[in-house]
Design a protein around this nucleic acid. Structure first.
Lengths: 146, 146
DNA sequence: AGACGATCGTTGGTCCGACCAACAAGTGGG
DNA sequence: CCCACTTGTTGGTCGGACCAACGATCGTCT
């Protein structure tokens, strides 16, 4: 009984399907990251840092859609592991300028691999063409609900 | 700035896209249900009841994938509003047989409308053919990760 | 008949992600 | 100098999903 007794009404409902797949996706990614002692927020911040360069914690949170308070905890963890460095901005002493380290960049590449494998596991039953279509549609939906 | 500063690495990642869309989907459905003083669990249980007929709370939870303890709270709320009735099973006095009432069935039809409108809002930017494709792919993914 | 294991409803938790409120320290404009 | 604002930080809340344990009840086995 793979598709167990879930009401048929729900099994055809897009919002329910999306949530169902999202649960599996989140589980896969979380498991992958947990295996290397990381969390999703780690990846988000490291990727943001590498793409946009050093930034204050507030900017970091705004760009990644992460709450300021959650940025604090994440930067703490990343700094503990030596993946980022925190330095007071001399030009504005309120700000902490966060910079990714070499170890952080290496770790990010590792996380990229882990994430890629999770995508592959998630999309296993889909052809390459289907995957493209899926990403295209999801992108349009995500962009539309801005 | 609709697709805000999210790292490009993430914006193309299927698992991230799915989560993003799932967040919007959940928000839409929750808002719709909240407007008629309902929650997602209400719909799940009522739909299960209507499709499979009266059932014990444990069976109800198994079929809907809802924890027994959460079934208790949901049945409480539904019974308070007169949408279901709880009666001890004379053949097995451990069980509470839950039955949907006429008011409950009417309410379920109402929730169906609300849910359908949410789907339409969610999938607005997609053509009918695209919607079919999307549902087909998501169903395959959901079924595969059983 | 009696004992034992399993199941039922129920209570009372935990855990995690997302969010919010308040604060001191610091900044910039009037 | 004062006032409005931002930043980092602390300490929450809130909802959804899950888990543990309890008394009551049932079925089975002996």
């Amino acid at each position: 009984m793979e598709t167990r007794g879930a009401p048929t009404r729900l099994r055809g409902t897009p919002s329910w399907l999306i949530n169902e797949v999202a649960v599996h996706a989140t589980r896969l990614v979380n498991e992958g990251f947990a295996a290397v002692d990381a969390r999703r927020y780690h990846y988000k911040l490291l990727a943001t840092l590498e793409e946009f360069g050093p930034a204050s914690q507030a900017d970091l949170g705004r760009r990644g859609g992460v709450d300021r308070s959650d940025v604090v905890a994440t930067v703490n963890e990343l700094a503990d592991r030596g993946f980022v460095e925190r330095a007071v901005d001399p030009a504005d002493r309120r700000r902490n300028i966060v910079t990714i380290t070499d170890a952080g960049a290496a770790h990010l590449r590792h996380l990229d691999d882990v994430l890629a494998r999770a995508q592959d596991t998630l999309l296993a039953p889909l052809s390459a063409a289907d995957r493209e279509d899926l990403v295209r549609m999801l992108s349009r939906l995500a962009e539309h609900h801005s």
